[in-house]
Design a protein around this nucleic acid. Structure first.
Length: 1035
RNA sequence: GCCGAGAUGGCGAAAUUGGUAGACGCGCGAGACUCAAAAUCUCGUUUCCUUCGGGAAGUGUGGGUUCGAUUCCCACUCUCGGCACCA
């Protein structure tokens, strides 16, 4: 092979990486731009093991999309950084004695080298680590903002304790009773901890998972199919959001009663808690009147009143809409948020009236001096404030995989039911239960308290005291795991007391049993063994009575509920309970507050101090960053005390309290005159590693800002993240915490969107092959030999099965990206990982297929270096192929179908390699299509096309012409009775008759029709699908 | 048990308003080039039958709708992932 044709991937890749780095090709500034795109990879924890081949999978996908967006003229924010606080770094430090700061920095260096070797187009000027003082000063600052917002409290209830890591963990970090970090059993331990009130946000975290549906109500003389109302509908439907803009009857001469009937028939049912309603002019006026007089079943999300009529405005046609004053209080209670868009030049409604309405509805007013009535056939472009609003709605609507949304819904665990009060027999003690089936109250035949319920000691009769205490002790000794594992065999003890069923005054026995948990509902249940499996099992074991109250969705033995359906009975029972003050409708969540503090060294110190009286105060902002002390003994303790607690000179400090009730630490000599010098002790716990990752996407927008975590301008410019790519393992950890903090930031006015991540995509895992014995044991790869596509264990000769398994050191099937880059190059690794299979699916690593990809890239190299690039015009066929390829690759990138995009590029190469010279116009398009996938090779090739360009990165993305995609001649398949019998080619302009005639002429078709006719059939039907199929039905 | 995703050649997989199932790649087979090998190129490669023209079957299973179903509907089996005594 000649020197000319050798592609030296090591040299070429290094050359371009250096070029991009020294020229800061991918750096972006924050100057305002119309077309921006923010793509984010879940930033990695820089582990000592280095990069896994799974990392580049997601990184390559975002890189492809970013490189394409840049070529399409977008300003692209594509950052990378390090999530470097946390247990593994610290555990490594304890094992080796190397300070976590040192090992972390070393790991970051290694990760940086590895990631840079793959040629991703990150803006490295925005890089940071969560462990940087410049970064965690703002983690602490934000913590204090949330503390001031009263979202934190101290609690000393028993919580999850990992004895192996000697650390408390959040509920989200416990998987099947095991600590997700180390796999050891988690036990309960009572420790004082800071808790985040994530439960305050439960409803919003749940609701905002669902997309809104938008309804637009037009005004007087308007309709749903013209003007900006129709534009809004188009806008949302194009973005996959349901939108309805109905046309009201007789809109030139409207009657309220007629509109009301129409609204109730066509719109009302579609109103959900996620609904957003735009009402223009009379449409807004109508809705005010409707909400003022009628009750909706649900409180909807947003009401956007655009130049709303508010009363008699002198237009005779609508006088019947406003016979009496609105009940503004009732209107504002029907909806979460109201916005009013008003214009200073509105001929019908005065500014004074708008202000009046805004105040009455506690709405937000968006006022534009120059707007008139937002009317007519104007399109959305002409009403920028409404367009802005639509974009905001879209930005707050998340496009996430069902799986992740389902997991979050499940974790939040909302249920609706009732709390019902039961009275203890012969006593005025009241015990409340929570149930989702209030309809079955007549079937409650016994009553169970959790063993930890505070009332147990009060209600236990003297003779049962001993038995109960023994049982309680037994339960407290069981670990959570045992309690769950033994769930097949329920246990419990009778307390000796009875409660009275409030609907039938029957006395029912009170038991305690550990299948009822203190943490959910009220820690007490009414048992309906006929209609609950767990209650039934328990009742059967202890011979408790069972009363059936529902048969085939009909209530029976249930007094006033008899004959009702379950749904009706639930409603009626709740009304009954509320009227008699025996209970109330209740919503319950499984979500618990977020246990935030950790008893470890390697985390952000918490900027809180305690006075000598034990009062907790926040540090003044000027005290940040509160630096993690350098020379700590970072061994954790058995007691759950943080290693920081041992550094007495750090813990014990003095200073004074400011007028804002914040603490400043200083020497006595520095105290202002009117302040008292006093002692404080610091909070010694640290934050969990989730803290740093709960706001990092915002820091990338403005990473060098030393005054604030991010500026408003930067946030408005880039937020929210357009595309977020990472593994599904963070479904209820990072992704829930991040949404929670972001919503709190939204409430604080720090961000302009309700959700942080617009589109979320999870890549599949990259797995490896492993070899399994019949008995199930896995054999390391190097102890296996292959004979005729079968696998045998070398030592025993036993036949093994090839299976797919996670990469692991012990199986010796780990692939190191460094080795691949060295041997085949970054482009090969990138292309291979994209070609392995569908992006979202798990895939097994196959080295021979990787080699195949390398061959493909070398084929491309030879195509453009061995053949002359000519000015010749490609054939019609090849022009068509090139345009098809442009379309396919463009569409596939947008849809994360990288595997088929690459297939199409292979088809292109296979066709063009048959030529003697490569037409420059086609080749240039191809190289640009290739560049997001294999940027090094593409840069190198681009020099052959356009040596005056420094880089291909900003060349325009190729376009295609729709009309060139179809041929002049099309091939029709011909079917007889649904079976393929032949095909023919014909001009694409041929008529149906011409095609059918041509089909009948085909020998085989004629034969089958003839045979059918021989058997007494005839042509019953002729089918014609333009451009595709001609069919005959012969019977 | 509940929720989510999925099942197509020897293997990874394509195929969306229902219209030629298996694109593209890996592997395998044959050939060309070569002293030879590697690399490269060309051809073939769902299964079964075949008189070599072709024919039949075929997308987890069983039904249904249709001229026509991988695609839509009903019932079921299995695999993977998550949650789980949540009243």
């Amino acid at each position: 092979m000649t020197e000319l044709n050798t592609y030296n991937h090591l040299a070429v890749e290094k050359k371009w990486q250096t070029f991009w780095e020294t020229n800061k090709t991918f750096s972006v500034d924050n100057k305002k731009s119309e077309k921006t795109f923010y793509a984010l990879d879940m930033f990695p924890f820089p582990s000592g093991a280095g990069l896994h081949v799974g990392h580049p999978e997601g990184y390559t996908a975002t890189d492809i999309i970013c490189r394409k967006k840049r070529m399409q003229g977008y300003k692209v924010l594509h950052p990378m950084g390090w999530d470097a606080f946390g247990l593994p770094a610290e555990n490594f430090a304890i094992k080796t004695g190397v300070h976590p700061k040192k090992s972390t920095n070393k790991n970051i260096q290694n990760f940086t080298r590895q990631i840079k070797s793959l040629g991703f187009s990150y803006d490295w000027d925005r890089e940071f680590s969560t462990t940087d003082e410049d970064y965690y000063t703002f983690t602490q600052d934000l913590f204090l903002k949330l503390y001031d917002k009263n979202l934190l409290y101290e609690d000393d209830k028993p919580l999850n304790w990992c004895a192996s890591c000697k650390v408390v963990c959040a509920n989200e970090e416990v998987e099947q009773e095991l600590h997700e970090r180390c796999g050891n059993v988690v036990t309960k331990k009572a420790l004082k901890q800071w808790m985040f009130k994530i439960t305050d946000y439960a409803e919003r975290l749940l609701q905002d998972l669902d997309a809104p549906n938008v309804i637009v109500l037009h005004g007087l003389g308007g309709n749903g199919d013209s003007g900006w109302g129709a534009d809004i509908r188009k806008f949302f439907i194009q973005n996959n959001i349901k939108c309805n803009s109905p046309t009201f009857p007789n809109s030139n001469n409207p009657q309220y009663s007629e509109w009301k009937i129409f609204f109730e028939k066509n719109v009302l049912d579609s109103i959900t808690p996620q609904t957003i309603i735009f009402g223009h002019s009379l449409g807004g006026g109508f809705l005010q009147k409707y909400l003022s007089e009628e009750n909706l079943n649900v409180k909807f999300s947003e009401l956007i009143l655009v130049a709303p009529t508010i009363g008699d405005c002198g237009i005779s046609e609508i006088s019947n809409f406003f016979t009496k004053k609105f009940n503004y209080h009732k209107i504002s209670k029907s909806v979460e948020n109201i916005f009013i868009y008003a214009g200073g030049k509105d001929p019908y409604i005065t500014t004074k009236e708008f202000n009046f309405l805004t105040e009455k509805l506690s709405a937000q007013l968006i006022f534009n001096d120059n707007q008139e009535h937002f009317w007519g056939d104007w399109n959305l472009e002409k009403i920028p404030e409404i367009l802005e609003k639509c974009k905001k709605i879209l930005a707050s609507t998340i496009d996430w995989p069902n799986k992740i949304k389902a997991m979050q819904r499940n974790w939040i665990g909302k249920s609706t039911g009732a709390e019902i009060d039961f009275m203890l027999e012969n006593s005025d003690t009241k015990i409340t239960v929570y149930t989702t089936r209030p309809d079955t109250l007549f079937g409650a035949t016994y009553f169970v308290l959790s063993p930890e319920h505070p009332l147990v000691k009060d209600i236990t009769t003297n003779e049962k005291q001993g038995e109960i205490s023994t049982y309680q002790l037994e339960c407290s000794r069981k670990s959570e795991l045992e309690r769950t594992e033994l769930n097949k065999n329920k246990t419990g003890v009778f307390t000796g007391s009875y409660v009275i069923n409030p609907v039938n005054n029957k006395k029912i026995p009170v038991w305690i049993a550990d299948y009822v948990m203190m943490g959910y509902g009220t820690g007490a249940i009414m048992s309906v063994p006929a209609h609950d499996d767990r209650d039934k099992e328990f009742a059967e074991k202890y011979n408790l009575p069972i009363t059936e109250v529902v048969v085939d969705d009909k209530l029976q033995n249930s007094g006033f509920l008899n004959e009702l359906s379950v749904k009706e009975a639930k409603e009626k029972m709740i009304i009954f309970l509320e009227e008699k003050k025996l209970g109330k409708k209740t919503v319950n969540y499984k979500l618990r507050d977020w246990i935030f503090t950790r008893q470890r060294y390697w985390g952000e110190p918490i900027p809180l101090v305690f006075t000598e009286n034990g009062k907790c105060l926040a540090l003044d902002n000027s005290q940040l960053p509160l630096i993690l002390p350098e020379s700590a003994n970072y061994e954790p303790s058995e007691s759950g005390e943080s290693p920081l607690a041992k550094i007495t000179e750090w813990v014990n400090v003095s200073g004074y309290i400011t007028d804002e009730n914040k603490v400043i630490i200083c020497a006595e000599s520095e105290i202002p005159k009117n302040k008292i010098f006093q002692k404080f002790t610091r909070e010694t716990s640290t934050m969990p590693n989730w803290a740093g990752s709960s706001w990092y996407w915002l820091r990338y927008m403005d990473p060098k800002n030393s005054d604030e975590a991010w500026s408003k301008d930067a946030e408005q410019q880039w937020g929210p993240v357009d595309l977020y790519v990472g593994g599904a393992e963070h479904a209820v950890l990072h992704l829930l915490y991040a949404r929670f903090w972001h919503k709190a930031f939204y409430d604080l006015g720090l961000v302009s969107t309700k959700e942080p991540f617009k589109k979320l995509v999870n890549q599949g895992l990259i797995l490896s092959y492993a070899y399994q014995r019949k008995t199930g044991g896995l054999i390391p790869t190097d102890e296996v030999e292959e004979k005729n596509s079968e696998f045998f264990e070398i030592s025993t000769g036993e036949k093994l099965e090839k299976i797919v398994a996670k990469m692991s050191k012990s199986l010796k099937n780990v692939v190191n990206p460094d080795d691949i880059v060295e041997a085949y190059g970054a482009d090969t690794l990138r292309m291979y990982e994209m070609f392995m299979g569908p992006f979202k699916q798990n895939k097994a690593w196959d080295t021979t297929a990787l080699e195949g990809m390398n061959k493909f890239l070398m084929k491309i190299w030879r195509l453009f270096s061995e053949k002359e690039i000519s000015e010749s015009c490609p054939s019609k066929e090849l022009i068509k192929l090139t345009h098809q390829t442009v379309k396919k690759v463009s569409d596939d990138i947008d849809n994360f179908k990288f595997n088929t995009a690459i297939s199409q590029m292979m088809i292109w190469v296979n066709a063009f390699q048959k030529l003697d010279t490569i037409p420059k116009i086609s080749g240039g398009k191809f190289v640009r299509l290739l560049s997001p996938f294999a940027p090094h090779l593409a840069e190198e090739l681009w020099q052959k096309f356009s040596p005056e360009d420094k880089t291909i990165s900003f060349k325009s993305w190729p376009s295609y012409k729709e009309e060139l995609l179809v041929e002049d001649e099309v091939t029709y398949a011909v079917q007889v009775n649904g079976k393929l019998r032949g095909d023919f080619s014909i001009s694409k302009t041929a008529t149906k008759e011409e095609c059918i005639a041509a089909a009948k002429k085909l020998e085989k078709v004629a034969k089958f029709i003839f045979e059918a006719e021989e058997n007494g059939g005839q042509i019953r039907k002729e089918i014609f699908v333009p451009g595709k199929i001609v069919g005959f039905v012969v019977k």
